[in-house]
Amino acid sequence: MSQNQNKRKKKFVGTSLQRKLLILIFASAVIPAAIIAISLYYLVFNLLAYQMGIPEFIAYNLLPVVHKVNLIIFIAVPISLFLIWLVAIDLSNRIAGPIYRMERELNARLTGEKSGPISVRKKDEIRPLVEKINKLIQKG
């Protein structure tokens, strides 16, 4: 199988399993990161404000820094979320894609449309499972 053939054409197969995995991966990356980022944001600025004490000093020295940081966050957050979303799609597809494909291939063999072993990509996580199913098919 060539490199191109080995690549999955569809990144989103649209199964409920992939949707669940996608949400799980996305949420498990975004939620802890958001909690840590928000905590650090407030911890650092609250500590600095506590040290500065007098409100004018906070407003003059700290608030411009806060505005700059907010601007960076405003730009960086959508980009980060988009990148996490892409990674989550890829990861979910690596698990859900082969299962979806195996289900299709098994259906095809059950209905008699196809015969012989199910082909599987080298890097697929479920390769050992497919190999065992192929052995079963060969026995049958």
């Binding site: 407030y42 600025f45 609250n46 600095l48 404000a49 506590y50 409100p55 004018e56 906070i58 407003a59 003059y60 700290l62 608030l63 806060v66």
Partner: peptide
């Protein structure tokens, strides 16, 4: 949070009228 700190600032000024309450040019919470 750091940006919810409020402050009352009593001043003695040469020009501003007595009894005036104004907002600091630096921050609305002062």
């Amino acid at each position: 949070t750091f940006n919810s700190t409020r402050s009352l600032e009593y001043v003695w000024d040469k020009e501003l009228p007595k009894g005036n309450i104004i907002t600091s040019p630096y921050f609305k919470n002062i």
